[in-house]
Deep mutational scan, measured.
Amino acid sequence: RHRTTFTSLQLEELEKVFQKTHYPDVYVREQLALRTELTEARVQVWFQNRRAKWRK
């Protein structure tokens, strides 16, 4: 699998949602996936990684 490189616009969208909730439900993730043109799975993994980073 290749590494997904996020654009600054995608990161902006993702971070905006992360500020509101660290655990977006499937509906929120789907909406975010559509807005960022990423798959829902990529969005889910981004949140997992972002939460790990936040905990440190």
Rank of each mutant, 00 (worst) to 15 (best):
S8R: 11
T36D: 01
L14P: 04
K16P: 01
T7N: 06
H2R: 11
E12L: 10
F47H: 03
E40K: 06
T4H: 15
T39P: 08
R55E: 11
E13L: 05
H22C: 05
R50I: 02
F47M: 02
K56N: 10
R1Q: 05
H2D: 15
H2L: 06
P24F: 00
R50M: 06
R51K: 06
V28R: 04
W54E: 15
Q44L: 08
L11C: 04
V45F: 11
F18G: 02
R42H: 13
Q44Y: 11
Q44K: 08
R42T: 15
E30V: 08
W46D: 03
K53D: 15
K56Q: 07
T39G: 06
S8Y: 07
L9R: 14
V17I: 09
L32C: 03
Q19V: 11
E30P: 01
Q10Y: 00
A52L: 07
V45S: 15
Q19T: 09
T4K: 08
E37F: 07
L34A: 13
R42A: 13
Q31R: 10
V43C: 03
F6Q: 05
Q48W: 07
E12S: 11
A52P: 01
Q44I: 07
Y23V: 04
L32H: 06
L9S: 14
F47V: 02
T4P: 10
K56L: 09
R35E: 05
T36E: 02
A41G: 10
V45M: 12
W54K: 10
R1P: 10
L11F: 06
T4D: 15
E37V: 05
V45L: 14
V28G: 03
E30G: 08
A52I: 10
T36G: 02
Q31D: 09
L11R: 08
R51M: 04
T39S: 13
L32R: 04
V28D: 10
V45G: 12
W46K: 01
R35L: 12
R42E: 15
Q10G: 01
D25I: 00
Q44F: 09
E30S: 12
S8M: 11
V45N: 14
T36Y: 10
R3W: 10
E40S: 11
A52M: 12
K53N: 13
V43P: 00
L38D: 05
E12P: 00
Y27K: 13
A41C: 10
R42Q: 15
